[in-house]
């Protein structure tokens, strides 16, 4: 199975986080907001002009810039899996 970064995941799709390649500061913040290996996230939409993307992790909706989203590697869910968290 190939992994994708959160930045590459299209809107409406979900995936399970396998790895986060970020510094301690950023990964601590991500962890606190519910972005950590093993969690399933779904991309809701992206903002116009290549702005941030809206991501749903558990009960929380987050906004994250594309640059930071690139640090999150995930395994895309199979298309038949329902994406509700």
């Amino acid at each position: 199975m190939t992994t994708l970064s959160l930045r590459e995941l299209p809107a409406g799709h979900c995936g399970t986080i396998v790895r986060i390649d970020a510094g301690i500061e950023l990964s601590a913040r991500m962890r606190a907001l519910g972005l950590l290996p093993g969690r399933r996230v779904k991309v809701i939409r992206s903002s116009p002009f290549r702005g941030p993307i809206q991501v749903r992790a558990g009960q929380t909706d987050l906004i994250i810039r594309r640059g930071e989203a690139a640090a999150i590697q995930l395994l895309p869910c199979k298309p038949e899996v329902a994406c509700s968290p």
Binding site: E25, L26, R29, M30, L33, P52, Q54, T60, D61, L62, I63, I64, R65, E68
Partner: peptide, 11 residues
């Protein structure tokens, strides 16, 4: 400054 725009979108 360390403030990546990584924030909650509250209901």
């Amino acid at each position: 400054s360390v403030d990546p725009l990584l924030m909650e979108l509250p209901p």
